[in-house]
Amino acid sequence: MSSTDPPVRVDSFEHLFDHGAMTPPADVSTLERVRSLQERVRQVQGTRPASTPVDTLPALSGLLPGGTLHAGGTYTVSGSSTLAAAMAAGASQAGAWCAVVGVPTFGAEAAAALGVDLARTVVLPDPGESWLPATQALVDVLGVVVLRPPSRVREGEATRLAARLRQRGAALVVLGDWPRPDVRLEVVGGAWVGLGSGHGRLAARRATVRATPRSGRPRELDLWLPGPDQQVSLVSPHAARTGDAAPALAPVREMAS
């Protein structure tokens, strides 16, 4: 929903001078000017922009504020390893390095099918006690770090890691629980298609993903996770309405070969 974001920002900006409700200005050139001015103010102040976007799969943009993952952001994913891998796939495709920490069950083949480049992926299956310093060292240089903390994370540890993340520009995807994440993603429902009682095979999954930002209303989206083409994509509104997925299934005969 990136098209709706800038007007909101302008709205609050304009509030300084004008009270009451007002419609966002439709003039795009004014928006552009305001944005470039904001950018210049940031440069003069010498601080990093609050959020540098990290390349993200287009299918996930509807779930994330601003439409992408942001450098320095923390995202928790519960209920789906596929979703966690998909969060890293966009950055990996764009050339960033990714790490998977504390997930000995990482399914590399599935991740590769989603678009994670395994040549630029490192796995720390069991970092043990040193998971936090290892993660801190990794976020210094890597684009996206997928982490499953082996134990409960204390608030202080999370804050320190978050500071480091913002400084270095990496995004952290946590499988499990994390204190005060930027966005909490969870799979709240879904169904596999392609499997009957005794025939067919798993072909694709439609999943309803709920994203709860730290501030703001939760959003829900229907995603193919993964789709019949192994990719993550939006379930088209038509399919969502009729409830009939019907992806092109390979004939059962293929299974026998």
């Binding site: 990482f106 590399a108 395994l118 992926t121 490192v122 720390l124 299956p125 043990g128 290892a134």
Partner: peptide, 16 residues
């Protein structure tokens, strides 16, 4: 550097 923390085998690449 991370290998220095978790050991040589602790950091791995994945090959299909």
């Amino acid at each position: 550097k991370v290998q220095g923390m978790v050991g040589h085998e602790g950091v791995a690449s994945v090959v299909l």
